[in-house]
Design a protein around this nucleic acid. Sequence first.
DNA 1: GTCAATTAATTCATTCAATGAATTAATTGA
DNA 2: TCAATTAATTCATTGAATGAATTAATTGAC
Lengths: 416, 416
Amino acid sequence: MKAAKKGINLEDVQELNRALVIRLLRKNRLCSRAKLASMTGLKQSTITNIINDFLEWNLVTEKGIIEGQKGRRSIGISLDSELYKVVGVRLARKYFSVGLFDLSGAGTTVIQEPLDAVEGPSRAFRRIRDAVEGVVARASRNRVLGVGMAVPGPFFRTEGKIGLMTEFPGWDHVALEQELRATLRVPVFLEHDANAGALAEWWLGPHSQETGTMIYVAAGQGIGAGIVIDGKLFRGTLGVAGEIGHMSIEYDGPRCECGHNGCLEHYCSTIALQREVKKALVAHPEHPLNEDHTLPAIFRSAAAADPLVMEEVRKAAWYLGFGLVNVVNTFNPDVIVIGDDLAEAGPLLLETVKETIQSHVLPGIFRNLKIELSAFPHDPVLIGVGTLVVEKVLQHPATIATLAATDDQRARAQEG
Amino acid sequence: MKAAKKGINLEDVQELNRALVIRLLRKNRLCSRAKLASMTGLKQSTITNIINDFLEWNLVTEKGIIEGQKGRRSIGISLDSELYKVVGVRLARKYFSVGLFDLSGAGTTVIQEPLDAVEGPSRAFRRIRDAVEGVVARASRNRVLGVGMAVPGPFFRTEGKIGLMTEFPGWDHVALEQELRATLRVPVFLEHDANAGALAEWWLGPHSQETGTMIYVAAGQGIGAGIVIDGKLFRGTLGVAGEIGHMSIEYDGPRCECGHNGCLEHYCSTIALQREVKKALVAHPEHPLNEDHTLPAIFRSAAAADPLVMEEVRKAAWYLGFGLVNVVNTFNPDVIVIGDDLAEAGPLLLETVKETIQSHVLPGIFRNLKIELSAFPHDPVLIGVGTLVVEKVLQHPATIATLAATDDQRARAQEG
DNA sequence: GTCAATTAATTCATTCAATGAATTAATTGA
DNA sequence: TCAATTAATTCATTGAATGAATTAATTGAC
């Protein structure tokens, strides 16, 4: 039997309320004290106290004026302090990237480098570590509060390592989290890439909401899902929930290396799409795609209304939609956001997915379901992992107070 | 955008802590104050205060002595007060039943009556209402705190009515909840029957735990799942999450009335099992089951090691297991509990399900997964719906205080 | 038997987070 | 210019958990 939940004492109340105010500031970039009071249900005097502390710690800044209809204008409060930063790392199959983000989630990719499958895990790991250290050093004027890393594939949380990472033999035995934690001096958080993408959509996406269920579908070389329920990632016991790519849609389908038969991935991953396009091209040796059957080329052809390619994209979208019907019937979510490589196929994909879902679920369920494409200008996974670090670090606002106090002391020591 | 979460004030702290103590008392039937203190993380003096109030309200009783290794013995605190009761109703396809339960979840079925598909919803509803009123009246020495009702099939929570109840035409337009609430004078809660079963397993089953994910699979004429995450039911937006019977395992399978193709239900519901047994019997006209192919007869034959029937049960179990692999890959649960009619098939079913799951998921996932049969002496759905009412009512312990005060006043008035 | 050690439960003054009520501040519109 | 309205602050008050001391009950060593 797992551990019980804990009771709440006055210290906890303060921490929870402050964390709540921070969450609201993250969702609503600019907020007045009055709005925070009404959103939290706390009294204005309480909010005044909280914001005063936050100002003192340099956690928030007063930023502009919010005009109302009548009465005194309110002062905008915003999280995007210049002082605190977080670092996000994305470890992908063919590259890694590193970004620097502020507490509001704004920031950019700073470094992106290709990863070579042959270089082996320890060398690759050193390169990533050096890149992160470089970014941390570059941010020396700021305080880097933590580092997050998004990793692909089934990732067993409790064991602190990747379970199965087919493209990188050897990596599954590297206790990534611990090594990073030992090297850097800040907290390190690891997360499945689909979960990271889901967090980005939840916090910063256009379909952002306060409660409910959002499923972010990372449809790329594999199909993974990040599940956010009332703002919290649902990870399952071992952290491998959301492996919808290994949901079967054909019980006597081809065997997958996961052990299952007829896995959804087999029908609608980008790999499947490329495979099917290639197959279809056999009958059309004169087709221009025979020269270049990379994914971008396929999507270009689809965008140019090439009927052969459009048909294959539609087929993949049909399977994806069909698999998502299973997801809808089990989770009954508010929103499904489709991201990653396959989402590049755009409206052609989305419309087919929507039609397939509509024609396979009860009308009442479809009416209450939003299905959208992810629409981030930059990599949502990298943004999401930054978001994750912000979330983790700001769950205990008191730690920021300690940091601020240390900074104060140092400043005073230099003066004296 | 849905409503935000609320901040916590001191009143909330008290309510949350008291509700926590009650939850722990529900899980651990007999507890000392010291144990409650260590489980909640609250101080002993706090627990003393809380328990004193509970004693005053007749919510708990001191019951026996718990011996330790050394030192003073502790006083057992237990929820099973004689004063407060809840009523549970199960509306099934062919019958309804009513039970009376105390706060610890103990109790029995009081009434079970057959329902006739032809009698029509309004007459059936009157009969149910009268039965509940009878049970409430019979419990007159106690206080009935609320009534819960478990209903079959997709049940759209927000609309307060059943969405699709194939066996009972007309019922889908009855706003069950409101009618019950108007008739009786106590709070009424409606719940999907699979969810009710899941609650019974979570609170009172042998696989009971404090945190984690439990999936209760109600495998009967349909296949539904109740999903409990960290003690809370996961219901999805409309309350229809867990419809795993309408998860497809064959994309070009037969069309289901839900709109999907190849729904799991079609392969392993009790209806499917009966259908397949009948089919198999065609080649064996001398087989005794030809006389009586009801479900109990089928299970008796299976228990008597009839090879034909065993084979059909194994087939159904294989499909169920296969479908549950999809559930495992999406939820990564701690425990799957299989209940309802199909579970009567016993170990034959369970072993095949386990083998199927084991051979279709990654070994690491299987190692951390418990798969069990539901093992309640009485109907877990009815028990679960009682549990639900207890949970709902005791979420606000202060209401009990009000009740106790009212009782006190009445008693004093009679004295004076 | 007796007494130290140990664990359970209670008592009551203390702490501190949110709060209520009054106040100050800023804005619109008549 | 002033009433009405909304925003934010101030400071004494409330009441929840708590700390420290105390009472209570039990074991085991001597």
